[in-house]
């Protein structure tokens, strides 16, 4: 049997908001360690990697490993039926055809159950090696979301340049150009507002704004976002999910032909 309970269903609601732009179907791998998902968008340009550790759940039981293929729009519809203060429990039996979502109101006077059919999916797994990145930037996630939104008005692509001075975002198009520079912040008491650059070598890479604007749907999950970059490898954009895990997005760069 598989059973995972989260007192804060709002976490799962936010996770679905963070993946539904990119994925229509995904296989959730459930094991003793927790719930993992790795899936690419249809164009195979970006990848979502989600990890929810079992010890982050309020109750977690997984008697045998399960791979559950789910429709992301359907799951998203079901989670929209939960109030943010509800507790959510995911439940499935061994060799399941369906998964059940149970939402309980705080005083348990309302219990809602939604059963969703599972789907068989061809699994494509990318082997992503441990990588030491040339630049790792931590910055406020809302600031990153705003920059992606603002610069995407100027062009389809955004160049991110990281140096010891800080990080620069730029876009160019028919209307003109846009540049936003963020300097490293001095030691600040408010870590959520900090911009921190760890740099071994300067990096300059160009990415599709459309995908970046999908990644920033994860902004409500965490006050800070971490961007990891090296020359000629995909960007990693990472958001911590409270004490339970993280979501990482990988994005292949654009290159001059």
């Amino acid at each position: 049997m598989f059973e995972a309970r989260l007192v804060q269903s709002v976490i799962l609601k936010k996770v679905l908001e963070a993946i539904k732009d990119l994925l229509t179907e995904a296989t959730f791998e459930c094991s003793d360690c927790g719930i993992q998902l790795q899936a690419m968008d249809n164009a195979h340009v970006s990848l979502v990697s989600l990890n929810l550790r079992s010890d982050g759940f309020d109750k977690y039981r997984c008697d045998r490993n399960l791979s559950m293929g789910m429709s992301v729009p359907c799951m998203s519809k079901i989670l929209r039926c939960a109030s943010s203060e509800d507790t959510v429990t995911l439940r499935a039996w061994d060799n399941p055809d369906t998964i059940v979502f149970v939402f309980e109101s705080p005083n348990r006077d309302k219990i809602s159950e939604y059963e969703m059919k599972l789907i068989n999916l061809d699994q494509e797994h990318l082997g992503i090696p441990e990588t030491l990145y040339s630049c790792v930037v931590k910055m406020p996630s809302q600031e990153f979301a705003r920059i992606c939104r603002d610069l995407s008005q100027f062009g389809d692509a955004m160049t991110i340049a990281c140096s010891k001075e800080g990080i620069k975002f730029s876009a160019a198009g028919d209307y003109g150009t846009a540049n936003v520079k963020l300097a490293q912040t001095a030691e600040t008491e408010n870590q959520e507002e900090a911009v921190v650059v760890e740099m071994k070598e300067p990096v300059k890479l160009t990415f599709s704004c459309r995908y970046l604007n999908s990644f920033v749907k994860a902004t409500p999950l965490c006050a800070q976002v971490q961007l990891s970059m090296s020359a000629e490898v995909p960007l990693v954009c990472e958001y911590q999910i409270g004490e339970i895990g993280h979501i990482r997005y990988y994005l292949a760069p654009k290159i001059d032909d």
């Binding site: 195979h44 340009v45 990318l126 292949a252 654009k254 290159i255 032909d257």
Partner: peptide, 14 residues
């Protein structure tokens, strides 16, 4: 001209 690469250019698919 700018080209969009795919992730399979970097990582091995299994």
């Amino acid at each position: 001209e700018v080209a969009q690469l795919r992730l399979s250019s970097y990582y091995i698919m299994s």
